[in-house]
Design a protein around this nucleic acid. Structure first.
Length: 127
DNA sequence: ATAGTGACTTTAC
DNA sequence: GGTAAAGCCACTA
C-alpha cells in the first residue's frame, strides 16, 4: 500500500546539509573519507576504492577522488597516499609531479608514475 | 527529475 | 605488458 510518507529523516536518507555555504557543508560522507585518508600510515598508499570501502562507501571510488580534489587542498590530509587500484597516479597535471615527490619524501618508491602496492600498499587490518 | 561529469574499477581484447 | 569499453556511484547543472 502506498506509504505516502517516506520518513524523511530515515537513517539512510541523504541529507542536503541545510547549512550555508559549501565551505561549511561537511557531509558525513566527506568527513569519513577524509578521516580514512588521514588514517593511511606514512610510507603507505591506498586506492580510491579501498578508501571508499574503508569509509563505509563501497563502490564509491569516484566520490573519494571528488572529495580529495574539492576539500583536501585546504586541510592537512595526505591526499598523495591515494592512488589508482593498480598503484598508478591518476591525478593529472602538475600536481601529479607533486604527488610523486611527496611520496618519495616518505620513502615510497615511485617508478614511472607507479607505486608497487605489493610493498607500500596499506593493509588497514594489519596496521 | 534528466543529463552530464569525474583525482575510479573491472573486464575484455 | 598495454589500451578500450562498460559499469559504477554520487555530485552538479
Amino acid at each position: 500500500m502506498a506509504r505516502r510518507i517516506q520518513s524523511k529523516a530515515g537513517p539512510k536518507t541523504r541529507r542536503k546539509a541545510p547549512v550555508s555555504r559549501a565551505e561549511a557543508m561537511q557531509d558525513e560522507r566527506v568527513q569519513r573519507v577524509l578521516a580514512t585518508v588521514d588514517a593511511i600510515p606514512k610510507g603507505k598508499v591506498a586506492s580510491y576504492g579501498q578508501v571508499a570501502e574503508e569509509a563505509g562507501l563501497p563502490r564509491s571510488a569516484r566520490f573519494v577522488g571528488s572529495v580529495l580534489g574539492r576539500f583536501v587542498a585546504k586541510r592537512g590530509v595526505p591526499w598523495h597516499r591515494v592512488l589508482g587500484s593498480d598503484g598508478t597516479i591518476r591525478v593529472q597535471g602538475g600536481i601529479a609531479r607533486d604527488q610523486a615527490r611527496l611520496l618519495r619524501a616518505e620513502g615510497v618508491t615511485v617508478t614511472n608514475g607507479r607505486v608497487k602496492l605489493r610493498e607500500c600498499g596499506w593493509d588497514p587490518d594489519a596496521d
